[in-house]
Every structure is written in structure tokens, then in C-alpha cells.
Amino acid sequence: MKEFTYVIKDKLGIHARPAGLLVKEAKKFQSATTITKNGQTKKLTQLMMLMSLGVKQGEEVTIAADGPDEDAAIAALKEFFEQNL
């Protein structure tokens, strides 16, 4: 399993539009990908659940990937967060 932590910079937090794009990105990989905030973990492929975390600006999240292509998944997700969130 690989993971990284990230502090959200976007003013609106993980709002609807990037959340939708994030799900699309996560679905590209075979590995199981998750997001954790304050001990709550949700699958990155679940839009509603992801939005229900209500991640705001300045909050820290941990992104993890577990599976055959976890390295590629983590690299892509890291880039996604840096560019969009």
C-alpha cells in the first residue's frame, strides 16, 4: 500500500466539480483507492461518500492506493490534488 497526505488549498474545499473529476481519475486504476479525513475513510470511487466527508480548505487528508498499479495511482492522484485542490 502507498499513501500521501495533502492539505487542501482550494477555497471551497473538495467541492462538487473536482470531486467528480477525482472519482473519474481514481476509476482509471485497478488498485483500491481511499481518502481519509479525521479517521473516516471513504473509497475514492464513490462520489457521494467523498462529498459527504465535507473536506474544507486547510484540512488534511490521506490518500492511499493498494493494488497492482498503486505506484501509478498515487503519482496520478498526487498530481491531481496539486493541480485541482
Partner: peptide, 16 residues
């Protein structure tokens, strides 16, 4: 216009 894309994604959500 993006709001309508988000609507489509909500509907396609696995949990829903």
C-alpha cells in the same frame, strides 16, 4: 455549465 456535468456524475454514482 459544469453544474450539469456534476448532476450527471451524481446520478452515475455507485452508491446512489
Amino acid at each position: 455549465a459544469e453544474i450539469f456535468n456534476v448532476h450527471a456524475m451524481l446520478l452515475e454514482d455507485d452508491d446512489y
